[in-house]
């Protein structure tokens, strides 16, 4: 028999017209800087969870149908300030929260989020936005059940990016004028970003996983942490012989 899920809450003032006290699903977030390997890990986590009998929904940063085009265009045009940047991200986030995340949680899904509001907190801090303002802005966010943080340092990140897709303008923080070339800028920008993530990891009690380890080792650790969480929550699964919440409605 399943215990009722622990009630969810908003991070700040919240969204008054949304009821979040009966969301049986679990919101699991993967955080970490660019190219740390979040999507590789998620690709392997999702089929594993499904084999375990959980229904899974995925959501990713700046992927909302409402705003992804606008964000891409604005980035290409370099016309954004830290304020408009943050507000666009918040709009994208709210769109996904209301139209994807909360409905899936209501239906008892596990929602795996590739990045969450902490990414905005880290980036904004590096870009020099008012920290208090950024946090107020994301007061509409739901507090996740579990935040798994893939921790790396700039030294280990650099070769990984160079072997992969290469350094891009935004992920190198070129717009901040931190260095004369993209390599220097990337290292400085990512070091600052990682420092912010580490700070947030302490404050918000992320579960930290060493992302310098081999992919399989990281995956095993993530699964271990997620299993423990789901057991503790008594998350509804097909295996346990309980009908999915959506079907009982």
């Amino acid at each position: 028999m399943n215990m009722p899920a622990a009630p969810k809450s908003f991070y700040g003032y919240g969204i008054p017209y949304l009821k979040v006290d009966n969301l049986p699903g679990s919101l699991i977030v993967l955080e970490g800087t660019d190219s740390v390997g979040r999507s590789t890990q998620i690709e392997q986590l999702v089929p594993w969870l499904e084999v375990e009998g959980y229904a899974v929904a995925q959501t990713g940063w700046t992927r909302s149908p409402l705003l992804s085009d606008t964000i891409d265009e604005a980035k290409a045009g370099h016309e954004l300030t830290v304020t408009t940047f943050s507000l666009l991200y918040a709009a994208d986030f709210a769109d996904r929260l209301e139209n994807e995340i909360i409905p899936a949680l209501r239906a008892g899904f596990i929602v795996v989020a590739d990045r969450y509001m902490y990414t905005a907190f880290a980036r904004n801090a590096v870009m020099g936005a008012d920290r208090h303002w950024t946090r107020q802005l994301f007061g509409c966010a739901l507090v996740p059940d579990l935040v798994l943080y893939l921790k790396i340092d700039a030294e280990h990140l650099v070769p990984r990016v160079l072997e992969g897709k290469g350094m891009d303008y935004w992920e190198s923080g070129m717009y901040l004028g931190l260095g004369s070339d993209i390599f220097d800028s990337f290292r400085r920008y990512q070091s600052r970003l990682i420092r912010e993530y580490n700070r947030l990891a302490q404050e918000f009690k992320f579960i930290t996983v060493d992302a310098r380890r081999p992919i399989e080792t990281i995956q095993a650790q993530l699964r271990h942490r997620i299993s423990a969480h789901l057991r503790a929550r008594n998350h509804p699964t097909v295996r346990q012989g309980t009908p999915a919440v959506a079907d009982t409605d």
Binding site: I15, Y17, P65, L66, E79, T81, T83, T84, L87, L88, A90, A91, A94, D95, E98, N99, C140
Partner: peptide, 21 residues
């Protein structure tokens, strides 16, 4: 009709912040 009250509000805030700047 994709807008929720929150996204409606945030899009107006983007407009405002852009014009402010």
């Amino acid at each position: 009709d994709l807008l929720t009250p929150t996204t409606f509000s945030l899009l107006h805030a983007v407009d405002f912040a852009d014009r402010l700047n």
